[in-house]
Design a binder for these strands. Structure first.
Length: 448
RNA sequence: GCCCCUAUGGUCUAGUGGUUAUGACGCCGCCCUUUCACGGCGGAGAUCCCGGGUUCGAGCCCCGGUGGGGGUACCA
C-alpha cells in the first residue's frame, strides 16, 4: 500500500441523527476537524441515517446547528447515507456474486441455538438460502487485526466473530456494510470515532477485504463519562451541545475544554486557541481511558475566555443571550464576576429590573435600624453631589464611612441590598454610577 | 455467558527503565478587598488498581487477577 493512500488526510464525522449531538460526538467531530485543518486535509460530513425508524430530519438539523455553533465546518456533505443505497446495492450484489456474502433467514434465536451447540465463543455461521437477510462470510481461520492509532494493534480471532448481517431482507444496507462502502468510496484516510465502534471494526475490515479495497487508518476515542463514572447523560446536567449553549458557554471555550478531555501533549498549557490546537493535535496521543466530563473546569475555562473578549463583543454575546439591549455599562462592571453568559442576569439584572425581593436573609441582615440610619446618611451625601461621577460617588461614600466611624461594609452592604435586593452585586460605586443618580437615590430612599 | 478495550492525587493529564512523579480544575489558607468574584502567593491531596515475574533498578516491559467501560440487533 502506498503512503499516498493516506495523505492528504480525508477525515469524516458521521453522526446518526437519532438524537441531539452529544458532547462525545462533538469531541469526535472536533478531533476530526482539527486533523483536517491542521494538515490541509478535507473534512467530510455524512449522516448515518440507515435506521429509518429512528432517524429524523429535525435531528439532522439539530446536529448541523450544533456543529455550526461550535464553528466546526466541513468541506463535503452533509451526505445522507440512504441517498447512496443504489451504490450499496451494487456492492452488495458483487459480494453475493463473489461468494463473500450469502442470504439466510437465520434469526437471533438460530444464532443462540448455534452457540448453545458449538460454544459461546464460537461465531455464528449460516448456510446460504435463496432469500433472506445478507450476511458476510467470516472465515473460521485466521484473525483480523485492527491497527488503531490510539490503542495499537487489537486482534480479533475470526472464530469468535458471527457472520454479520450486512443488509436486511429487503436489500437495504446495515451500518457495518454501508459505513465501509461509504468510507471507501469517499477515500477516507482516517476514521476517528468513539470506542463503541472498536468491536465493529473487524467486521468493517472484512468488508473492505471482500471489496478488495485498502482500508483507512483507524483511531478509537475513549467514551465520555459523567461525574459518577457512568456514561454521560442528562442526569449530569449538560450532555448535549445544545445544553452547553443554553448554559451560557462560549464555543471557543467548549472547543478548548473538549480537546483536552482525553488528550494532552507535553506542553503544560491549558488555555489553547483553536488555531494552536489544530497545529498541535495528534490523535496518537489521545488517552486510552474514558474521561469524566467535569463541568467545573469548563466553567473556569469559560470564565477565562469570557474575560478575554472585547467589551463590545461580550456585550453582543450577552444581549443575544438575554434578549435585552443596552447592557454595555452593566457588562463592563460585571465581566470579572461571571463564568458563563447565564451568570450575568442573576448578578446584574437588578440594574434593569429593580431590586430582587427574594433574598430575605440579606434584607434582614443589612436593613436593620442601624443599616437604615446608614442608608439615610448615604442618601444625604449622595444627594448633595454636584456631579454623578465614579470618583465623586466613592469620595462621598468614604466620607460617610469616616463620618459614622463605621466599617466600610456597614455602609456599603445596606446600599447594595437597597439597590440589588441581595448581598452580592458588582462593585458598589460602579453600580451606583451605572444606575444613575435618580434610580440610585430612589432605591436607597425606598429601603430606608 | 462470550469477545474486546482500559487503569497515575476527587477530576483531566505529563511521564515512555534510574524524577523530591508534571501541570491544570476543584479544595484549604494568606494577600488584595465594600459583597461576590478576578488576580497574586502558598498548601493539603497519589501504597502510580492488586499479585507475581523480567531487571542492578519498574509508574513505565511480561503474565495473572480485580475494578471500570464497550460490543454481543435484519440499531448506529
Amino acid at each position: 500500500m502506498s503512503i499516498d493512500r493516506f495523505y492528504p488526510m480525508r477525515v469524516r464525522f458521521a453522526p446518526s441523527p437519532t438524537g441531539a449531538l452529544h458532547i462525545g460526538g462533538a469531541r469526535a467531530a472536533l478531533y476530526n476537524w482539527l486533523m483536517a485543518r491542521g494538515s490541509a486535509g478535507t473534512m467530510v460530513l455524512r449522516i448515518e441515517d440507515t435506521d429509518r425508524e429512528r432517524s429524523t430530519e429535525e435531528n439532522v438539523e439539530q446536529i448541523l446547528d450544533a456543529l455550526r455553533w461550535l464553528q466546526i465546518d466541513w468541506d463535503e456533505g452533509p451526505i445522507s447515507q440512504v441517498s447512496r443505497s443504489e451504490r450499496h446495492g451494487e456492492v452488495l450484489q458483487q459480494l453475493l456474486d463473489a461468494g463473500h456474502a450469502y442470504r439466510t433467514n437465520a434469526t437471533g434465536e438460530d444464532v443462540k441455538a448455534y452457540k448453545a451447540q458449538h460454544g459461546q465463543d464460537r461465531g455464528f455461521r449460516g448456510t446460504a438460502e435463496a432469500d433472506g437477510a445478507v450476511r458476510l462470510r467470516v472465515p473460521d481461520d485466521g484473525a483480523t487485526v485492527v491497527h488503531d492509532l490510539v490503542r495499537g494493534d487489537t486482534t480479533f480471532q475470526h472464530v469468535h466473530l458471527d457472520d454479520p448481517v450486512i443488509a436486511r431482507a429487503d436489500g437495504t444496507a446495515l451500518y457495518n456494510f454501508a459505513v465501509a462502502v461509504d468510507d471507501a468510496d469517499a477515500r477516507i484516510t482516517h476514521v476517528v470515532r468513539g470506542e463503541d465502534h472498536l468491536s465493529n471494526t473487524p467486521k468493517q475490515l472484512l468488508v473492505y477485504q471482500a471489496m478488495g479495497v485498502t482500508p483507512p487508518l483507524f483511531a478509537h476515542l475513549p467514551l465520555l463519562h459523567g461525574p459518577d463514572g457512568k456514561k454521560l447523560s442528562k442526569r449530569h446536567g449538560a450532555a448535549s451541545v445544545q445544553e452547553l449553549r443554553d448554559a451560557g458557554y462560549l464555543p471557543a471555550a467548549v472547543r478548548n475544554y473538549i480537546a483536552l478531555l482525553g488528550w494532552g501533549d507535553t506542553d503544560d498549557e491549558t488555555l489553547i486557541s483553536t488555531d494552536e490546537l489544530s497545529r498541535r493535535f495528534d490523535v496518537s496521543r489521545v488517552s486510552k481511558n474514558p474521561a469524566q466530563f467535569d463541568e467545573k473546569k469548563l466553567r473556569w475555562m469559560n470564565g477565562r475566555y469570557l474575560r478575554e473578549l472585547e467589551l463590545d463583543e461580550l456585550t453582543a454575546e450577552l444581549e443575544a443571550f438575554t434578549g435585552r439591549a443596552g447592557l454595555r455599562e452593566a457588562v463592563a462592571i460585571s465581566r470579572e464576576k461571571i463564568q458563563t453568559l447565564a451568570d450575568f442576569w442573576p448578578l446584574a439584572g437588578f440594574i434593569f429590573d429593580g431590586p430582587s425581593t427574594e433574598d430575605e436573609k440579606a434584607q434582614a441582615k443589612w436593613l436593620t435600624d442601624e443599616g437604615r440610619a446608614s442608608l439615610q446618611a448615604s442618601h444625604e451625601a449622595l444627594s448633595a453631589l454636584p456631579e454623578w461621577t465614579l470618583e465623586a460617588i466613592e469620595e462621598a461614600l468614604q466620607g460617610v464611612v469616616a463620618g459614622r466611624e463605621a466599617k466600610p461594609k456597614d455602609v456599603f452592604q445596606p446600599i447594595r441590598v437597597a439597590l440589588a435586593g441581595t448581598a452580592v452585586s458588582p462593585g458598589i460605586f460602579e453600580t451606583l454610577h451605572v444606575l444613575g443618580r435618580d434610580a440610585s437615590l430612589e432605591r436607597i430612599a425606598a429601603a430606608t
